[in-house]
């Protein structure tokens, strides 16, 4: 028996909107730790790791570890039917081939339930070791989204370079080239507007903008994004989910042949 009650249901709506274009089908894993997911895109270039910690739910009952295969597009369709202020409860019985999403309006005058068929998904989990990154950039998530969108109108790939001067995003395409440099800036009114760069080693890595643009679908989840880079390692783009957990995207770099 599984019953997870999330008062801020909009968080789950936003999570689905942020990952449904990158991944088609995924297993949601439920344990005493929380509600989590790890899934790769079909070409195994990018990976999404989601964690919603059990403490973040108003009610969290998960009698035994459960893995539920879901089509993310279908799940997003159902969650779209929940109001932004609705409380969402996820329910499943042991051995059942369905999951139920229950939506309660804040005033409890409308209660809906949507039952979705589960699916069997063969998915391999990758072991992702905790790594010390050469450079960690924290910046406003809307700024990062803007940069990825703007650069993708010029080129297909972005080179992200971190030096003492700041973080530089560069691209080249048929019509020309573009460079955007963001300097560390901590003298802002709101801490979330800051750009903070922690650098141990200079880093320069190249990534497909197609994927970084998928990641920025998570922008509504958090006002800041953290980009962790090490030479010759996948980049980690993390959006924290207030007091609950995170959505992390991993993307393998491109190399010159």
């Amino acid at each position: 028996m599984l019953e997870l009650r999330l008062v801020q249901g909009s968080l789950l709506k936003k999570v689905l909107e942020s990952i449904k274009e990158l991944v088609n089908d995924a297993n949601f894993d439920c344990s005493s730790t929380g509600f989590s997911l790890q899934a790769m895109d079909s070409s195994h270039v990018a990976l999404v790791a989601l964690l919603l910690r059990s403490e973040g739910f108003e009610h969290y009952r998960c009698d035994r570890n459960l893995s539920m295969g879901m089509n993310l597009n279908n799940m997003a369709k159902m969650l779209k039917c929940a109001g932004n202020d609705d409380i969402i409860t996820i329910k499943a019985d042991d051995g059942s081939d369905t999951v139920t999403f229950m939506f309660e309006s804040p005033t409890q005058d409308k209660i809906s339930d949507f039952e979705m068929k589960l699916m069997d998904i063969d998915s391999e989990h990758l072991g992702i070791p905790e790594a010390e990154y050469d450079a960690i950039v924290r910046m406003p998530s809307a700024e990062f989204a803007r940069i990825c969108k703007d650069l993708s109108s010029i080129g297909d790939t972005v080179v992200i370079s971190v030096t003492k001067e700041g973080v530089k995003f560069s691209t080249k395409g048929d019509i020309g080239a573009a460079n955007i440099v963001c300097r560390q800036n901590t003298t802002v009114d709101k801490p979330d507007d800051a750009t903070v760069i922690e650098m141990k080693e200079p880093v320069s890595l190249q990534f497909a903008l197609r994927y970084t643009n998928f990641f920025t679908k998570a922008t509504p989840l958090s006002s800041t994004v953290t980009i962790s880079l090490s030479n010759e390692l996948p980049v980690v783009v993390e959006y924290k989910i207030a007091e609950m957990g995170y959505v992390r995207f991993y993307l393998a770099p491109k190399i010159e042949e």
Partner: peptide, 14 residues
């Protein structure tokens, strides 16, 4: 020419 790497080059299956 650029080559897109895949994640299994960096992370092993669990």
């Amino acid at each position: 020419k650029q080559k897109q790497q895949v994640l299994s080059r960096f992370f092993a299956p669990k």
